[in-house]
Simulated scan of single mutants.
Amino acid sequence: MTFRILSWLAAAALSCSVGVTNAQQQTKTTTALPDEVIAQMSDTCAPPTDDSRGLVPQHYSLDDARSGDLWLAVCNVGAYQTTYEVIYQADDAAPRKLLFAQWRNGSWTGTDVLYDPSFDPDTGVLTDQYKDRGAGGCGGERTWQWENGYFRLTEYRAAEACNHNVSELPVIFEAE
């Protein structure tokens, strides 16, 4: 009986330590920004000084035809969305900030800001969504595909007029 209790306690302690180890490994996907990456960020960025909300830079090592490092750097934290800037550094080059298409006032423009982005390193798909108001109903959703050192826009959905009944934003652009 004593052996059974000790075995159970040992197994419980081992599973707890494995859980802690896995949690530590997952947090290592984010890290502090290198100085050369910080130098690429806009002067208007005001990253949070603590990570109490879990808003820390995200780093991805890319292994494709143009391997390098991709950084999603927290820029400004708002009430219902957080802006990020994206910096890419090819293995053989200096870091550079990436620019993205944005639909505003019925025409195309560019921006260096993404809103609450998500990047899947396995597929190379980057998405973001922005709200023009906290309640939603207007704003945009964008999707890009990583290709040879650049993100190619594959879909853009947007609604400039706010509407409470919007279940899905209309398609503004879709790649062929």
Rank of each mutant, 00 (worst) to 15 (best):
Q26P: 14
D51L: 14
T49R: 09
Y60V: 13
A93Y: 07
G54I: 05
D43K: 15
H59N: 07
N148W: 02
T83F: 08
V77L: 06
T111Y: 09
T21D: 15
G19R: 03
S7R: 15
V18A: 05
S7P: 06
C138G: 12
Q40M: 03
L169V: 02
G124W: 00
W144K: 01
D64M: 10
T49M: 04
Q102G: 04
C45M: 02
Y115Q: 08
G139N: 01
L9S: 11
R66L: 12
T31S: 08
D50E: 14
N105I: 13
P34K: 05
Q102F: 10
D35L: 07
C138M: 07
I172A: 01
A39C: 07
M1H: 13
T29G: 10
A159S: 09
V74W: 01
T127D: 03
C16N: 02
P95R: 01
A73L: 07
L9M: 13
S52V: 13
P47L: 00
E168H: 02
N148D: 10
L9D: 06
A65G: 09
G68P: 01
A159Y: 04
E85N: 02
Q25P: 15
A23F: 09
F151V: 08
S67E: 09
K97Y: 04
N165K: 08
P48K: 03
Q58K: 04
L9K: 01
F119Y: 10
T143S: 11
W8F: 12
A161M: 04
P47K: 02
P48E: 10
D43C: 14
T83V: 02
K28E: 15
L9V: 09
C45A: 07
A13N: 03
R4D: 09
Q25R: 12
Y156C: 00
T2C: 15
F3L: 15
Q26N: 09
P121V: 08
V166T: 07
S167C: 06
P47S: 14
Y88F: 06
R53A: 10
G137A: 00
N165M: 11
L70W: 00
Y130V: 12
Y84D: 01
D116T: 05
G134H: 01
C75A: 05
Q89K: 12
I38N: 15
G136I: 06
L114G: 10
A46E: 11
T154C: 09
T154G: 05
W71Q: 08
A79R: 11
E176H: 04
A73E: 09
R152S: 15
A46D: 15
S17I: 07
Y150V: 12
N76Q: 06
D64R: 07
S61E: 11
A161Y: 06
S107W: 06
G134K: 10
T27V: 04
T30K: 14
L6H: 10
A23L: 13
T111R: 13
V86N: 03
